[in-house]
Lab assay of single mutants.
Amino acid sequence: DLSALRVEEVQNVINAMQKILECPICLELIKEPVSTKCDHIFCKFCMLKLLNQKKGPSQCPLCKNDITKRSLQESTRFSQLVEELLKIICAFQLDTGLEYANSYNFAKKENNSPEHLKDEVSIIQSMGYRNRAKRLLQSEPENPSLQETSLSVQLSNLGTVRTLRTKQRIQPQRTSVYIELGSDSSEDTVNKATYCSVGDQELLQITPQGTRDEISLDSAKKAACEFSETDVTNTEHHQPSNNDLNTTEKRAAERHPEKYQGSSVSNLHVEPCGTNTHASSLQHENSSLLLTKDRMNVEKAEF
């Protein structure tokens, strides 16, 4: 173990290094160091905050020279020094078990990766560091076993998940096959086929009936047209017969005018059967003409 005197000496050296690497504005270890034209180094955030307070150039807090945003430059070497100082402080805390008085939040800088452990060898070769390295080497064999167990647990979990997924996939297939086998029997399929065939026959029977009705309507229309044509021909046949009657009536009127007047009046009210309204109107006109002729003949006879 380190003596108290040596611990104090190391602590004083760390404090001196820390004062050199402090920012003059925030009085902390410089984060993202930036250098000016006057070779003074500050935190990048502190300098941008200072420049944004005034429009135009501002003055350096140490030498009062003008500073602009374009004049600022990043210093990589200074950032490396800060990183190495942080590593020294971490090693000091691990070796002594004491917390550094002016320690900052170094938890963000710590890294437990194997590459980081290899890099620590180049920091300080001390008894405390050696003991700590031995402890780490002793704890390393235990870690692979834990990793193997965790991997086995994960693989077993994956296997159970896969088996569950396969079961879920197989179950719908089985149910679907069961439904297909038990849903419709052979008799049901035959009945469905016969039902479809009967429906098709009914459709075939319905369509000819409609065509037959249309044919019957067409035949009825044709018969009505033929009947009207026969009526017209009958009226045409009746007209010459009426003319013959008129000639006979004229002759009778010349011989017996008194008797014919009474008979002509009675004939006005008689309509021949089986004739249309057109034929009756023609008869009325003929009878009126005959009456006028008879009157003329009677007057001539009187004179």
Rank of each mutant, 00 (worst) to 15 (best):
D1G: 02
L2Q: 10
S3F: 03
S3R: 15
L5V: 08
R6P: 06
E8Q: 08
E9M: 12
E9P: 10
E9Y: 12
Q11L: 08
N12S: 04
N12T: 06
A16K: 04
M17E: 15
Q18I: 11
Q18L: 12
K19S: 05
K19A: 09
I20A: 05
L21Q: 14
L21T: 06
L21G: 11
E22H: 11
P24K: 09
I25M: 03
I25Q: 13
I25Y: 11
L27R: 07
E28F: 10
L29Q: 09
I30G: 08
I30V: 07
K31D: 13
K31L: 13
K31Y: 13
P33K: 08
P33N: 10
S35D: 02
S35R: 07
T36S: 07
T36G: 03
K37M: 02
K37D: 01
C38P: 14
D39S: 07
D39M: 10
H40W: 05
F42Q: 15
F42C: 14
F42G: 09
C43R: 15
F45A: 09
C46P: 15
K49W: 07
K49I: 00
L51E: 12
N52F: 11
N52R: 13
Q53G: 11
G56D: 13
G56W: 02
S58D: 04
S58I: 11
Q59C: 14
P61M: 04
L62R: 13
L62K: 08
K64E: 03
K64M: 01
D66R: 10
T68A: 08
R70W: 06
R70E: 14
S79P: 12
Q80D: 00
Q80A: 08
L81Y: 05
L81M: 00
L81P: 14
L81F: 05
V82G: 04
E83T: 15
E83N: 04
E84S: 10
E84D: 07
E84V: 08
L85M: 04
L86K: 13
K87V: 01
C90V: 09
F92A: 11
Q93C: 14
Q93N: 03
T96I: 08
T96L: 13
L98P: 06
Y104T: 15
A107C: 07
S113L: 14
E120T: 08
I124V: 06
Q125Y: 06
Q125V: 09
Q125K: 08
S126E: 06
S126G: 11
M127V: 13
M127F: 00
M127L: 07
G128V: 07
Y129N: 08
N131V: 14
R132W: 00
R132N: 10
K134D: 05
K134R: 13
K134N: 07
R135A: 02
R135L: 07
L137W: 02
Q138E: 07
S139W: 08
E140L: 07
E140G: 09
E142G: 06
N143Q: 05
P144I: 04
P144R: 07
L146Y: 02
Q147C: 02
Q147I: 02
T149A: 09
S150Q: 07
S150A: 10
L151F: 08
L151R: 13
S152F: 07
S152G: 11
Q154K: 02
L155H: 13
L155Y: 11
S156Q: 13
S156P: 13
N157F: 02
V161S: 13
V161C: 03
V161P: 11
R162T: 10
R162G: 13
L164T: 12
L164P: 11
L164I: 02
R165T: 14
R165A: 09
Q168H: 00
R174G: 15
S176P: 12
D188G: 03
D188Y: 03
V190Q: 01
K192N: 07
A193L: 02
S197I: 01
V198H: 01
Q201R: 03
Q201N: 03
Q201H: 10
E202V: 05
E202A: 11
L203H: 11
T207N: 01
Q209W: 00
Q209S: 13
G210M: 15
D213Y: 00
D213A: 02
D213F: 03
E214H: 15
E214G: 11
S216G: 10
S219G: 11
S219K: 05
S219F: 00
S219Y: 02
A220Y: 00
K221S: 02
K221R: 08
S228L: 00
T230K: 11
D231M: 14
D231V: 03
V232I: 12
V232T: 06
T233A: 02
N234A: 04
Q239C: 04
L245T: 09
N246T: 04
T247N: 02
E249Q: 12
K250L: 01
A253T: 06
E254P: 06
R255T: 13
H256M: 01
K259G: 09
K259S: 03
Q261L: 01
Q261S: 05
G262P: 08
S263W: 00
V265F: 01
V265T: 10
S266Y: 01
S266H: 04
N267L: 01
L268N: 08
H269Y: 02
E271I: 14
C273G: 01
C273V: 15
C273L: 02
T275F: 13
N276P: 02
T277E: 04
H278R: 14
A279D: 15
S280T: 09
S280N: 10
Q283I: 00
Q283N: 11
H284C: 04
E285I: 01
N286I: 12
L289F: 03
L289P: 02
D294P: 13
D294V: 06
V298A: 12
E299H: 00
A301D: 11
F303M: 07
